[in-house]
Design a protein around this nucleic acid. Structure first.
Length: 307
DNA sequence: CCGTGTTTAGCATTGA
DNA sequence: TCAATGCTAAACACGG
């Protein structure tokens, strides 16, 4: 794997797949969701390599957004003009790169399964959550317009600027690039979830519990020192999810005994096992040509990721 | 018109 | 070797 320069990859192609690049961009913003144009901008700002042949890689990137289940589309609200939707990471996609390579995932993230009557309850709050995210986005974009659209450089780029917490998602640019060159002076970096993250206000009973259940792992000293193998980062660290708002039809529920239970990701496990039955768990899925009639309005749907 | 999103196809690379 | 994954190209539809 090529070693990047200290602050830039210059003309060299970064050793990251489009999936990881996109995930970085999404994770870099406080709302955990970005329009396509912002994703483009993030990548071009960070990696000069991608300032050329834009048509080529942007086409590939769009392909990845549509094709991979780890990305979910969040529609704009009617009062929020603009082209395209927002893109977010699926709540359970944080451990895709277990093998430590950002060029190749250990397995493709795939939303397969649907079940549970929880979805019915989740649906009741889904619109509110989506509304909230949209509002956050709106505020952010307004702020960008009011100040500057220029993204800060790596050395100063910190989610904490606009977010009280110093939480770093495995896909966060700091985490990914810091594996290659340490951030000077970064002795202590909290890996806990943002206690003041807006989402906790939206779904407090869900996200607050996630914080409690996950932080003991994420606060690892190795992680803090940027020495933890990425495998551990991705597996132990949890994705701070954007609220998945299904746009596409949901595949027909198919029971796969023996697949579900052993591999329920921590995110889902938490919501399943340590949450009250009323815990909202938004579900989404890429459309399936074989199931054009199914929609997310099915009250029995629940997404489960199978690795 | 252009940006966005979806889909299909082919090829290369990687890991089991 | 084969399947999974990633990259690229291309066609097409849709909407601002």
């Amino acid at each position: 794997m090529p070693r990047p320069g200290r602050n830039t990859y210059s003309e060299q192609k970064p050793p990251y797949s489009y999936i990881s690049l996109t995930a970085m961009a999404i994770q870099s913003c406080p709302e955990k969701m970005l329009p396509l144009s912002e994703i483009y901008k993030f990548i071009m700002d960070r990696f000069p390599y991608y300032r050329e042949n834009t048509q080529r890689w942007q086409n590939s990137l769009r392909h990845n957004l549509s094709f991979n289940d780890c990305f979910i589309k969040i529609p704009r609200r009617p009062d929020q003009p603009g082209k395209g939707s927002f893109w977010a990471l699926h709540p359970s996609c944080g451990d895709m790169f277990e093998n430590g390579s950002f060029l190749r995932r250990r397995k493709r993230f795939k939303v397969m399964m649907i079940m549970a009557a929880q979805e019915h309850l989740a649906q009741s709050k889904l619109s509110d959550a989506a509304h909230y995210l949209q509002q956050q986005s709106k505020l952010r974009l307004s702020a960008l317009a009011a100040t500057s659209t220029h993204l800060p450089q790596i050395s100063s780029y910190n989610l904490g600027v606009s977010q009280p917490s110093t939480f770093k998602h495995p896909f966060a640019i700091e985490n990914i690039i810091a594996r290659e060159y340490k951030v000077p002076g970064s002795q202590s970096v909290s890996a806990g979830y943002p206690l003041h993250n807006p989402l906790t206000a939206a779904w407090p009973h869900m996200y607050n519990t996630m914080v409690d259940s996950v932080s003991p792992i994420s606060m690892s000293g190795d992680y803090v020192a940027y020495r933890m193998p990425l495998k551990s980062m991705c597996h132990g660290g949890q994705t701070l999810p954007a609220i998945p708002v299904p746009i596409k039809p949901t595949p027909t529920p198919v029971a796969l005994p023996g697949v579900l239970t052993p591999h329920i990701p921590a995110f889902l496990s938490n919501s399943y096992q340590s949450q009250s039955p009323t815990s909202p768990q938004a579900a989404t899925s890429k459309s399936s040509p074989s199931t054009p009639g199914e929609t997310h309005t099915n009250p029995t749907v629940q997404s489960v990721v199978v690795h």
